[in-house]
Simulated scan of single mutants.
Amino acid sequence: MKTSEAAPLRARAEIDLAALRANVRALRAHAPGAQLMAVVKADAYGHGALPCARAALAAGARWLGTATPEEALALRAAGIPGRIMCWLWTPGGPWREAVEADLDLGVSGLWALREVTAAARAAGVPARVQLKADTGLGRNGCSPADWPELVAEALRAEAAGLLRITGLWSHLACADEPGHPSVVPQLARFREMVGYAEERGVRPEVRHIANSPAALTLPDSHFDLVRTGIAMYGLSPSPELGAPADFGLRPVMTLAASLALVKHVPGGHGVSYGHHYVTPGDTTLGLVPLGYADGIPRHASGAGPVLVGGKWRTVAGRVAMDQFVVDLGGDEPPVGSEAVLFGPGDRGEPTAEDWAQAAGTIAYEIVTRIGTRVPRVHVNVNAEREA
């Protein structure tokens, strides 16, 4: 693996795998009676799926979760063992490949059940299937009215040796909002739908509905397994629930760049497209070689915070495709000095949550959108010296 010293100089996203492993252990402590699924969809929320998957498993995660089958198949092709689940399917997807790779396949409707059953028949291998119930999110999942038919057909396929129903699951809509009135009814509906399936002979290995916020704050939702995504990467699922440190979590990604230019300008000088920022007096400007093509939110123009030379600076004017400017207030750091956009906050740098607030979005989007031009530099890869 590369080290931080070997990283390209323009910019880098440093991924602290020791922090990720510690986060997994902390999350397991929050849900001690349940197995933990480490969700590594969307390239592990922008952190690098393969290194993060390995680190999570080393820290005790029993399952890995992805959205698309292609993500899960890539993990399996890279040699990742054990239980991997994927759940976002469209007609004609790689069902047979997924069956042959021994993946757990989320099924939300009869069309999907029929496609996976046909794939299992062609492969000559029973499929692992997890039936998803829509308990109130109104997104993916089988509606309560259609649940009896889905369960009945799945049981017939299981009796024919074409599949094994390995799980029953759902997803909470508002677990990140403390006390939201939808949570209790969703849990009750999940118990009802699970009970219906089990009364008719389904014997799932796992029942699960808890995402990161539920794993942290709703013990009644833990069942047999919790699916932790954003919390595993050290970010709070909601500022209302608490900061990462309140749950024993540490942000895993630090995004930094090297100043590409430092120059003097007079007062009244327009900065970046549209001159939405004009210097109030003689000053120095620093050029940060990251832009919206790298995932820096254009919505954070004039607001995004950056640590340069031990001081917080703010994006001056508009974020452009490849670069943005900060007003250094007359300070003169040398070209090549580090500009830290976000990290754990240990050095006084902004966090991903600070950028989320500046852009009017959530921290999930800030880390996930960092583009492929920014290399991921994974540090603390080995866990031998950890407790």
Results as ranks from 00 to 15, higher is better:
A293G: 14
D354T: 01
G304Q: 00
H299S: 14
P334A: 08
V278F: 11
M321Y: 02
T314A: 10
V335H: 05
L290N: 02
P333F: 14
D322I: 14
P305F: 08
H264Q: 15
G304V: 00
Q323E: 13
G291Q: 10
P266S: 10
V288P: 02
A293R: 12
G295K: 01
L290K: 05
T351V: 03
G330Q: 04
G267Q: 07
T351R: 13
H275P: 00
V262E: 10
G336L: 14
T351K: 03
V340A: 06
G270S: 15
V340H: 03
A300H: 06
G268T: 07
L287R: 08
D294N: 14
E349Y: 04
G310S: 14
A358W: 07
G348Q: 12
E332I: 10
E338A: 13
V288R: 08
Y292R: 08
A260W: 05
A352Q: 03
H299P: 01
A300G: 10
Q323K: 12
G274E: 10
G270N: 14
L307Q: 09
D282I: 05
A316N: 08
A316E: 09
T351Q: 04
G267F: 09
P350M: 13
D327G: 12
E349K: 06
A339E: 06
A356Q: 02
Y292D: 09
H269S: 13
L259K: 09
V306G: 02
E332C: 03
L307E: 07
P305E: 08
D327W: 01
A363G: 06
A358T: 01
E332T: 15
L285K: 05
E349F: 04
L341H: 08
P333G: 06
G291L: 08
V319K: 01
G267M: 10
G330P: 04
L261R: 15
G270A: 15
Y292M: 04
P289Y: 09
T351G: 00
A356N: 03
G302V: 01
R318W: 12
L259G: 10
V288N: 06
G343L: 07
G281K: 15
R318T: 11
I362G: 12
W355D: 07
V271D: 03
G330H: 03
M321W: 01
Y277V: 02
H269L: 06
S337A: 15
V306S: 04
S301G: 14
A356M: 02
T283R: 08
Y364G: 09
V288Y: 07
V335P: 05
R313M: 15
A359H: 13
V271A: 04
L290F: 02
W312C: 00
G302C: 05
T284W: 01
V326N: 11
